[in-house]
Design a protein around this nucleic acid. Structure first.
Lengths: 222, 222
DNA sequence: CGGCTGGTTGACGAATCTCAATTTCGGTGG
DNA sequence: CCACCGAAATTGAGATTCGTCAACCAGCCG
């Protein structure tokens, strides 16, 4: 995942296939490939897995301009579109590998992409780890604002409460209660059910604690 | 992190520096570098971060034969030895990058390493996510057995209960209680406090649910 | 209008955290 | 070799948070 399109990756454009997906539809792939890299153009995508107890855990959330890899054998993971029309560009892994073999810049950017994906996963891990439900939701809102700020201080929620719950590993009800709580304390304000205004960022960061470090793109910043 | 030393990485040996660390000592680095890759020879290493509430979260646990990256600017993360004498080989990032530019096989192996690190982090994330404390500990024991099996069905715990607690995001007391519980049900047996025999693997996997997928090394298995 | 999905709120119980006390283990010095 | 010390490990009791179950509201679409 990467929010800034690195320029070396542009050289892949020639081998791109445009995919359009509906809601809850798995990202398609051609069985003859070893997987493919995707660049998300519009919509939202989740990488998720099912727990033995039947609940779903969202492992990664992709938003427009993110770059990510989809293996054909996800080993229990599924990658699917979450919202209405989701559009993405797909690049066969073989071709990417071949290009990277000859293009050192591309190779480094691929490492940078994975590095950032790793960083985000670690951030998510830290949040799941311990903080309270309100803090989890607060962190989620801040993260989302950094990644997909509608306007400064305003976030359009691209996903349902259920998805948020599965992303943060809490029950839907708890997500609702947390949002309500933040609202009543004047830290956020809801516009409809899918748009959030951040009224008191400091409080949100303090409670959420974990200032999500959106992350510059270090060259191999693990 | 990688438990199998890929052979292309051997070509780095020329530029290796051997580091020896004591317990709780941060992995040293030279300020003039952009970071370094490390190959853990003996001991154990943790990558951790401090939560706003003061608690520490272990984000990654490195065991002998693991390969991992240490950035000089960890952005709040620290990487340090956990046990007595920890020995590792260090390779400056610049040199690795330069070599990877010319060595496609090395470049691919680097991607594979990061890919596995990502997979493990996702596994950990999933465990933190929802399961009960007993299941967390069970999963941890199984994972550890796969990565560092003393003998089959026997695990030497390289780290303290406190570290386990910080890795699994539960309190130390809860870790103890979980271990006691597993013992009383005959699923595991303790030999001293730092060695565990797995008596009933099936039960452990079932309860722990999440069968930790130690992970073969797919070439770019994201 | 009726059904359905998504969202919200309340009450209750279970699991975990916190605080506190106690025991075990390892090493260190006499 | 033994006594002693501190860190690690364990156990208990009470407080708190969160999940579950259940009811209810609000758009949306046929």
């Amino acid at each position: 995942m990467l929010s800034v399109q690195p320029h070396a990756l542009r050289r892949l454009d020639g081998s791109a296939t445009i995919l359009r997906c509906n809601r809850d539809q798995e990202i398609p792939y051609r069985p003859e490939t070893a997987g493919h890299w995707c660049y998300l153009i519009a919509g939202a995508v989740r990488r998720s897995t099912i727990r033995p107890d039947g609940r779903r855990q969202i492992l990664e959330l992709m938003l427009p301009c993110d770059f990510f890899f989809v293996s054909d054998d996800q080993g229990g993971e599924t990658v699917e579109a979450i919202v209405g029309p989701t559009v993405l560009a797909s690049y066969p892994a073989e071709r990417v590998d071949l290009l990277a073999d000859r293009d050192r810049e591309l190779a480094r950017e691929l490492r940078a992409i994975m590095s950032q994906s790793l960083r985000r996963t670690r951030d998510q891990l830290m949040v799941l780890g311990g903080v309270t439900a309100v803090e989890k939701v607060g962190w989620f809102l801040l993260t989302l604002e950094k990644r997909a700020s509608d306007q400064k201080g305003q976030v359009e929620l691209p996903i349902t409460r259920y998805d948020i719950a599965e992303y943060l590993s809490v029950s839907v009800e708890t997500v609702c209660r947390a949002i309500t709580d933040l609202q009543q304390r004047g830290i956020i304000a809801l516009v409809g059910t899918r748009k959030v205004k951040i009224m008191d960022r400091a409080a949100l960061e303090e409670r959420g604690g974990t200032k999500p470090q959106g992350g510059k793109l270090g060259l191999i910043a693990a």
